[in-house]
Simulated scan of single mutants.
Amino acid sequence: MNSYIFETIEHHKESPAKIIITSIDHSDYHWHYDYELIMVVKGEIILSVLPEFCLMQEGDIALVNSKEVHGFQNNNQENICLIIQIKNEFFDLSDDKNQAYYFYLNSAKEAVKPRISYTHFQRTLAQIGLESGHMKKTSNLRIQGLIYMLISDLFDYIPHDIQQFANEAVQNTDSEEVLKIIRFIEKHLIYDNLTEELCKSIGMSEKGLYRFLKSTIDMTLKELIDVTRLNHAIYLLSYTDKDNSTIASECGFCNDNTFYRCFKKMYGMTPLVYKNNTADDKKPKRIKEVQGYLDYSKREAFQLLKKYVEIEGGLRLDAYAQD
């Protein structure tokens, strides 16, 4: 499994956002400066924004804030997702570069509800996704207008906080340090003295590491190790023929029972049930050129997006008919 300390997102010079329609296999923990909106168009995925996890089902939308450590995981079935990555500079409403806006948008959790229906955001996101499939000269202009409207709606209707940092360098360093810790854990899952070796590698005491993880991602080291081991177990269950005992050992679990208990607690099913649900004939085809993405039907994706676009305010569905 690969880890990414920092993901560089390339944008078209005339566009404030990068738009991706894809089927997700997995995405290891990473972070980037962009604000990222995810809409599940088909199926379901597991979204991890440390320290929390949530199951996103068809129609759910979520926003990953700038510099948040996050990852995705396929949940045993085909999925199609719309991902919109917006440059963080378009969220700078203040001259203070040490301020950042943190939005609470996740329809799968609904811990904090927006001041407008989720349907409003589904429609806007679907319009952006549909426009991205066109080659018309006006499509980029339309996408820009929709993105600016989306950003305005986030500020107007989504609860958010203003986070103040001592300086931007400290904020970036914390994210990099978290990913450095995760990368070390991934590479040394089977170590009996993993905690001791990790502390030596990063130059922290065990107590200092505990305080750092609690303050940055609100997780203990044991919780982070268990999550990382389970992520690797998911990969092995999905794409190898190894038995449960072998997988438990390769992921660093002390015995099969511990592996079974942790897995069922996290995913609500046993490793065997998960493996049977990802039989070869049920797996989407992998796209080898793109890590973590699977093949999908473009026609199906656009047909599914259309259902979120209502005939309203002069907007016509036939404007999105595919050539």
Rank of each mutant, 00 (worst) to 15 (best):
F121W: 07
A279F: 00
Y33P: 10
K282A: 02
G145K: 11
K285L: 12
A108K: 10
R229G: 10
K275I: 05
V170E: 12
Y35I: 01
L50G: 03
V290Y: 10
A166K: 10
N88M: 11
E52V: 09
P114D: 01
L221H: 08
E52N: 15
F302E: 07
Q57C: 08
K136D: 15
I247T: 13
V64Y: 01
R211W: 06
A279S: 10
H70A: 11
E186Q: 13
Y101V: 08
C199D: 07
F253S: 07
T220G: 02
F259C: 09
G292L: 05
N106D: 15
E177K: 10
G133W: 02
D281K: 11
N231L: 03
F72R: 00
Y118L: 00
Q164P: 04
Y267P: 02
I21P: 04
I185Q: 02
A166Q: 11
E168I: 03
Y29K: 06
F155P: 04
F103W: 09
N257A: 09
D323W: 02
Q77D: 01
N79E: 08
L141E: 13
E223A: 13
S201E: 14
I247L: 09
G59I: 00
D60H: 09
Y33V: 04
G252D: 03
C254Y: 11
E310A: 11
K97Q: 09
F263Q: 14
P51T: 08
A62M: 15
S3A: 07
L304T: 08
L213R: 04
I46G: 04
K306M: 13
I20W: 03
K283S: 07
P114F: 03
L63Y: 00
D295V: 06
L230T: 00
F259H: 08
L317A: 12
L105G: 05
K42G: 01
N244C: 04
I19R: 11
E168T: 10
A111M: 13
A126Y: 11
N193G: 00
H70G: 12
E310M: 06
N193R: 01
K298M: 08
R142G: 06
L230W: 01
S215T: 05
N74C: 12
V227H: 08
T124N: 14
C54S: 14
I225K: 09
Y308Q: 02
N172H: 13
L304E: 15
D174F: 12
I162W: 03
K180D: 07
E36Y: 09
F165A: 06
P16I: 10
P16K: 08
Q163M: 09
F53V: 04
T195W: 02
C254H: 10
F53D: 14
P51L: 07
R229N: 13
